[in-house]
Design a protein around this nucleic acid. Structure first.
Length: 171
DNA sequence: ACTGGGTAAACAG
DNA sequence: CTGTTTACCCAGT
């Protein structure tokens, strides 16, 4: 596992990689990590391949934060997900910036029209937010629904994409 | 605004 | 396997 920090206008994200690809993205931490030194063992593991993935991830992340399409992505390591979760996450990649789907629409798209609630669960388990755009999935009637990284992030990401005509959620 | 029933997946035990 | 917990949804109050 190799981690890298990605500074952006909205804070410093952290991306984690395995040999299989990008495995996770963490939102900026409130707590200021006294950053600086990197673990030397990680440096040894780093390969040209991973270095390329890091560049692609940083570029894609910044572009999505600007409301644009991500451009080329590194391979995504979804090996920790179940078959169902991978189907949901895969469907999320087809939602363009500025567009939204509802949980039940995603359920229908993957061929399980009664699994809207389970789709919510899979979105909550998405380890690669922003690039796998679970923030573009809303509840029925345009309500905001939930977001693991906090609803503020969901609102901010949607606003950046000009997709902010949903009713406000409690809270 | 609040409830209750229906529904499906993941997880703890 | 059984119970509990969900980023759900819809029809009734």
């Amino acid at each position: 596992m190799h981690a890298t920090r990605i500074p952006t206008k909205l804070g410093t994200f952290t991306a984690r990689f395995t040999e299989g690809g990008l495995a996770a993205i963490d939102f900026p931490e409130r707590t200021k990590t006294n950053g600086r030194n990197s673990d030397p063992s990680e440096t040894l593991i780093a390969s040209a391949k991973v270095a390329r993935w890091k560049r692609q991830t940083a570029s894609a992340l910044k572009r999505v934060l600007e409301g644009r399409r991500p451009g080329p992505l590194p391979p995504l390591d979804w090996s920790q997900g179940t078959e169902f979760q991978r189907r949901v996450w895969s469907a999320l990649l087809d939602i363009a910036p500025g567009n939204t789907r509802s949980y039940s629409e995603i359920a229908r798209i993957i061929g399980q029209p009664r699994s809207a609630r389970a789709v919510g669960g899979a979105c909550g388990a998405n380890p690669i937010p922003v690039l796998v755009p679970c923030h573009r999935v809303l509840a029925a009637g345009g309500r905001l629904g939930g977001f693991s990284g906090g609803l503020d992030w969901k609102r901010r990401l949607l606003a950046r994409e000009g997709a902010i005509r949903f009713t406000l959620a409690p809270g």
